[in-house]
């Protein structure tokens, strides 16, 4: 395969599709992270939240479908993946709540708290998998994964639809204004009668919900099982996209599309002899670093980010 083979429809169409799919995880996660960070709480735990979401969705869908499959091995039950998605969101919210309690109520270093959750996401899934499936690396493959509408999972449409929605919520509603004011100047917000703690709790939990959704997309949308470490750094890349996108929905969309494209390129070029796969796999990470170093110069984070609020 030479260079010329790249510029064909057979290569470009799947490339576009893969780009949209790999963007979805990043976009959902980054939009969620935006709420948390705009409210002044660094959320490095996004990676762990994705993993917990993915685990919950895969395991719950598999357990739900098991009795039906026992009767009819090809049973398709439409509500199972959706319940699994819902559960993944609930678990994501719970993880977000833990992060919120530790970093808002107990005023922990938010990065350490997030790292702890990521470490937890590296260890706990193995125990859960060992309990249900007697192995520590992957869950059982399931039949009832998310459906595809016109070639894409519904969550792909949802992710892109969420861009204008978050923009509206963040910049056109009173709640969005309060959220941003809490992240910029919590003392002033508090004086104005805004409950800083509650706003931050809501924001962090919301980011957990969206990251859990992204995880569900990975495990029962893209794949049909949970695989250990399946998020492979996408939570961190989403965080970088958030910074690159200047904490703004439109910017985040652009940044995640760029990273998604880099990842899709890596996948599409994977088998050929254009580039060794190990080199391509490093691309998104190198781009992230370049972006963070070079182009973000003018990007200004929320002023109160990372600082616990002392009433």
């Amino acid at each position: 395969m030479g260079l010329e083979s790249i510029l064909t429809a057979a290569f470009l169409v799947p490339l576009l599709q893969t780009t949209l799919r790999s963007t979805t995880t990043l976009l959902l996660t980054a939009l969620g992270g935006m709420f948390s960070e705009r409210s002044g709480v660094v959320n490095i735990a996004l990676e762990g939240m994705i993993i917990f979401g993915a685990l919950t969705a895969a395991v719950s869908a598999q357990l739900l479908e098991a009795p039906y499959l026992a009767e009819n091995p090809g049973a398709r039950i439409w509500w199972i993946p959706w319940v699994a998605v819902l559960l993944a969101m609930v678990v994501g919210a719970f993880i977000g709540w833990i992060h919120a309690v530790v970093s808002i109520k107990y005023k922990a270093d938010q990065i350490i708290s997030g790292t702890a959750i990521n470490l937890l996401a590296a260890g706990l899934p193995s125990l859960v998998l060992a309990y249900f499936y007697d192995n520590t690396t992957a869950s059982k493959e399931l039949v009832n994964r998310l459906p595809e509408w016109l070639g894409f999972s519904p969550l792909v449409y949802l992710a892109f639809a969420l861009v204008p929605v978050t923009w509206y919520v963040m910049f056109k509603t009173p709640w969005g204004l309060r959220l941003r004011s809490v992240g910029e100047h919590p003392e002033a917000a508090d004086t104005m009668g805004i409950n800083v703690f509650r706003t931050r709790y809501t924001a962090v939990i919301l980011s957990g919900v969206l990251a859990g959704l992204a995880g569900a997309f990975l495990s029962i949308g893209v794949l049909n099982q949970f695989v250990r470490n399946m998020s492979a750094g996408q939570g961190f890349i989403a965080l970088a996209a958030l910074i690159f996108g200047k904490w703004h929905p439109i910017g985040v969309l652009g940044a995640t599309l760029l990273f998604g494209f880099a990842k899709a390129l890596a996948i599409q070029l994977g088998g050929g002899d254009i580039m060794p796969p190990t080199v391509i796999e490093a691309f998104p990470f190198i781009i992230t670093m370049l972006v963070l170093a070079g182009f973000v110069g003018t990007s200004r984070p929320p002023k109160a980010i990372g600082k616990p609020y002392e009433k």
């Binding site: 002899d273 190990t278 080199v279 990470f285």
Partner: peptide, 29 residues
């Protein structure tokens, strides 16, 4: 924090690149 995390993944790639194979082809040429 983000940069060190990115560097972890890059290091893992370099590591595999060095010891997974002795021959790599670039751009088919």
């Amino acid at each position: 924090v983000i940069n060190t995390i990115m560097m972890n993944y890059i290091a893992a790639s370099i590591f595999l690149f060095m010891i997974a194979s002795n021959e790599y082809t670039f751009f088919g040429r």
